[in-house]
Design a binder for these strands. Sequence first.
DNA 1: CGAATCGTTGAGGTCGCTCAATCATAGTGG
DNA 2: CCACTATGATTGAGCGACCTCAACGATTCG
Lengths: 252, 252
Amino acid sequence: MGDGLEESALARKLRHSLDFSDEDVAGIIALEEQELAVAPRTEIVAQDSGDPSYFVLLRGWAACSKLLPDGRRQIINFAVPGDFLGLRGFLLPKADHAIVTITEAKVSQFPRQRMLDLIRDNPRFGAAVLWALSFEQAIVVEHLVNIGRRSALERTAHLLLELEARLGLVGLSHDGQFEVPVTQEDLGDALGLSTVHVNRVLRQLRAQGLLATRQRRVEILDRDRLQELAQFPAGSLGHAAAGRLGQKGGAR
Amino acid sequence: MGDGLEESALARKLRHSLDFSDEDVAGIIALEEQELAVAPRTEIVAQDSGDPSYFVLLRGWAACSKLLPDGRRQIINFAVPGDFLGLRGFLLPKADHAIVTITEAKVSQFPRQRMLDLIRDNPRFGAAVLWALSFEQAIVVEHLVNIGRRSALERTAHLLLELEARLGLVGLSHDGQFEVPVTQEDLGDALGLSTVHVNRVLRQLRAQGLLATRQRRVEILDRDRLQELAQFPAGSLGHAAAGRLGQKGGAR
DNA sequence: CGAATCGTTGAGGTCGCTCAATCATAGTGG
DNA sequence: CCACTATGATTGAGCGACCTCAACGATTCG
């Protein structure tokens, strides 16, 4: 089980977003099969792999991505501590995506069959998975809008604001400052831009006084203008909970 | 209940993709609250509406889209007969997207609370919803890759091949011919392209002998080259079933 | 027939890409 | 501690894909 620090990130998220009590959280954590330390740039789930496991990311960053035959890559979503990994894939016959760590990471693994059993037997848990999947999809949809209909400047701003909001949910963002341990190439693959252009866009955001970047650390300097530029709705991410779906059926 | 023709499209899909028996299908159909005929270009679910219902599209086309404040629009996904509408939204506090009919359509409506009860009480049904959501997300992810990392020509080819495959699942595509009752503006909003460029791309696809378009009807002339252009994996969509998730718990 | 919607085509502009070089940073072994 | 290396960030020049604006056909429908 986690050593406290990592666990709390997940617990914080579960309580905040999914309306789970401490007891529930403990129950979920107890399900984990094993906890793994993973090196940077390591593939956790391979594209087209069958029977994939399901993970919770306890520490570090990862990316869910798709690789085209010719080498082009699209990052679907970054995963930050507390996030679920492979939620979408584990019901499909094959994972249609790869999951790769970006930094050193720690994950806990939930074998596929165990998850399936649990969903079948515990409605409250199934509901939670359903909610998490919906939430994840909302993020992916936002990325789709971002890439499809926003300029490079707008979409970069939007992604950074989204990351800040998500990191905030697990206590990894303070005063508009947060770590983004990701290369500009990664950002480009997430934003549908070239590495070079990501660099120029970041420079532009800096020049306009909207944010500062030191190393891999980002600081939001002018949130209002940044949000306006990105058309980022204030408080959009999960601050409203899932409602009370699981309330009645709560078996354990 | 449906008049037979529409019902069969849904039933076909449920049996084909979700491994439901005729009996199951009948059970699901029986849940519907009411059946609605909807005019073209009518909003079924408004963006940011709370407490949205959940629908099955029996006839016609619809689009799930997001509108930006400045009027830009991104179509997340087209819905064809047999598709579920609003699956993602109904667990979230607010629908984060709009659903608009494209043609005249017929939908059956499942009120939100009824769905929630059902998921809680019937694990098999919950599993089916989970699977459907995963499947829907796989399509959205594919669109993300499409827009993020493929050229206009590639992504247009890809979308058409995807639509053909999906229409084939419900018997609406024969010999590579199928109706796409959608304007080029709609296509552009789905592909992240301008209307004008969609037109040019289609012309190019025609000029290369890959497909023909008459009115709103598309015919695939050279599937091999089209699939190669789009990097579209043959038989990728749902021809493999969801597995046997629901088998054991099957309460009714 | 008139009106509206949609499709088609041209001209010109721009955003973002590619190619390529240089600079910064961190790690490594001597 | 210092080359030496590898990786990533930065910048420039030139180009191409796609966009915008605008006009003109084609189709449908009342």
